[in-house]
Computed example of a mutant assay.
Amino acid sequence: MGYRNLSPQAMVNISAPWLDPAQDRKVFTSLPLLAPLLPAVEEAREGWHLARTAVLHPI
């Protein structure tokens, strides 16, 4: 399966350790090519969580 075939939920699951200081965040930020992407990954995950919450719990 290519990365472009991942569901949003799969990408959230994959990226979770990258953002967790107790897991892979230190490694992610130590890599010069990946470190600048961290804010975009955080923003994308936050957007996904907000959208999912809005769908599951509409006002």
Rank of each mutant, 00 (worst) to 15 (best):
D24W: 10
V55I: 13
D24L: 14
Q9D: 15
L33N: 12
I14T: 00
L34M: 11
A10C: 08
L50Y: 07
V12P: 00
K26G: 12
H57P: 04
A44Q: 09
R52A: 11
L6C: 02
E43D: 10
Q9H: 15
Q9S: 15
L37D: 05
T53M: 12
M11V: 12
S15M: 06
V41N: 10
A44R: 12
E46N: 07
M11R: 06
V12S: 01
E43G: 14
L31V: 09
A40V: 14
I59N: 13
R25S: 01
I14D: 00
H57Q: 13
S15I: 00
P21D: 05
N5M: 09
E46M: 03
F28K: 08
R45H: 06
S7M: 06
N5Y: 10
A51V: 05
A40E: 09
P58F: 11
P58V: 13
Q9F: 10
S30H: 04
Y3L: 12
W18C: 02
A44V: 09
L6H: 02
I59Q: 15
A51F: 03
A10P: 00
D20P: 01
L33F: 09
H49W: 03
E42W: 07
Q23T: 07
W18G: 01
D24M: 13
N5R: 10
S15V: 03
D24I: 09
L31F: 08
Q9V: 13
W48S: 05
Y3D: 02
E42L: 11
F28S: 07
A10D: 09
A40P: 04
T53H: 11
L50W: 05
V55F: 13
L19I: 04
A35C: 08
T53F: 14
L19N: 03
A51R: 01
Q23C: 03
N13V: 00
P17Q: 09
L38E: 15
V12M: 02
D20R: 01
A44D: 06
R4L: 01
R52M: 14
